[in-house]
C-alpha cells in the first residue's frame, strides 16, 4: 500500500475519516510532539486512522477519532456501569461491554476488610471506576475514588437500566447536555451514566423513568435544539 494522500492534514480535522486514511505525515513535522488518542495508529512516518469517525483535535497537540460503537474499550478513570456475572474467592467478574470481563476485587470498597466483604448476586448492577487497563490482562475496577472514599460508587438498586451506544453516553456525560437539562426542568429523577454505554434511571414515579429513558434513546443523532423540541413534545403529551 503505497498510496499517497494529497490532502493536507489540517483540512481533515472535523472531517469524517475511515480506516487507512493518512491523517498526519510526520516527515514534515519533525520538531513537534503530538499525542494520539483512540482510533489512530503510527505506521512509520504516517499517522493513519484505524476506526471510522470524526477526526478531532484539541490544543495543543492531541488528535483522536471520535466514534460511536456498541462495544466499549476500557480506559483509565472512566466511570462505567457493570453487571456482575460471576464471583470467585475475593473477586467479582463484571461485564462492562468490553472484549474481556473486568475484575472487581472484593476489597475495592470503602471501609471493607476481609471480614465484612460485600456479597453481590449475579446480575447486580454496579457503578464503578476503571483503575487498570493493561493489554493482555483483564481490566480492573474499583468502587472507591482515588482517596479511598465510596463517593457514589457501588451497587445501584431498583431503577431501570438500558443500553446505548458509547457516543450517546459520552454526549450525556458532557457538561451541557440539552436532553438532560430539558428533562431536569420538569421531572425529578436520578441518573447514572456509564461511559461504556449503559444508563440507569430511577424516579419515584414509574412514568418519569419511562419518559426519561425514551427521551434519552430518542436523542441519539439529534442536535441540541432538536433534542429540546423532542423533550418538550414528549412532556406536553403526558401532561394532557
Amino acid at each position: 500500500m503505497d498510496t499517497k494522500v494529497s490532502v493536507s492534514p489540517k483540512s481533515l480535522i472535523d472531517q469524517i475519516v475511515v480506516p487507512g486514511d493518512v491523517v498526519l505525515d510526520l516527515s514534515n513535522m519533525t520538531n513537534q510532539t503530538i499525542k494520539l488518542g483512540s482510533g489512530l495508529r503510527q505506521d512509520g512516518d504516517a499517522i493513519s486512522a484505524v476506526r471510522a469517525g470524526k477526526l478531532s483535535y484539541s490544543k495543543p497537540n492531541t488528535y483522536w477519532v471520535e466514534s460511536s460503537h456498541k462495544r466499549y474499550i476500557p480506559r483509565l478513570e472512566d466511570h462505567v456501569l457493570g453487571i456482575v456475572v460471576d464471583y470467585k474467592a475475593e473477586n467479582f467478574w463484571v461485564d462492562i461491554k468490553g472484549a474481556q470481563l473486568a475484575l472487581l476485587p472484593g476489597l475495592a470498597f470503602e471501609g471493607v476488610t476481609r471480614r465484612n466483604m460485600p456479597k453481590f448476586e449475579v446480575g447486580t448492577l454496579l457503578y464503578a471506576r476503571v483503575v487498570k487497563t493493561n493489554t493482555g490482562m483483564n481490566p480492573e475496577l474499583s468502587c472507591t475514588d482515588a482517596s479511598g472514599k465510596a463517593a457514589l460508587f457501588g451497587p445501584l438498586r431498583d431503577g431501570f437500566m438500558f443500553e446505548t451506544s458509547t457516543g450517546l453516553s459520552r454526549m450525556l456525560n458532557s457538561q451541557t447536555c440539552p436532553v438532560l437539562e430539558a428533562l431536569g426542568k420538569k421531572l425529578c429523577f436520578e441518573i447514572a451514566i456509564g461511559i461504556n454505554g449503559r444508563v440507569w434511571v430511577n424516579a419515584t414515579a414509574p412514568r418519569s423513568v419511562i419518559i426519561v429513558a425514551n427521551a434519552i434513546m430518542n436523542s441519539e443523532s439529534l442536535s441540541g435544539t432538536q433534542q429540546r423540541i423532542m423533550v418538550e413534545k414528549l412532556l406536553a403529551k403526558i401532561s394532557d
Binding site: R41, S48, R51
Partner: peptide, 11 residues
C-alpha cells in the same frame, strides 16, 4: 467491521 469499530489498517 467498520461499523463495529474493529481496528483496521485499511479498507
Amino acid at each position: 467491521l467498520v461499523d463495529a469499530g474493529i481496528p483496521m489498517k485499511h479498507l
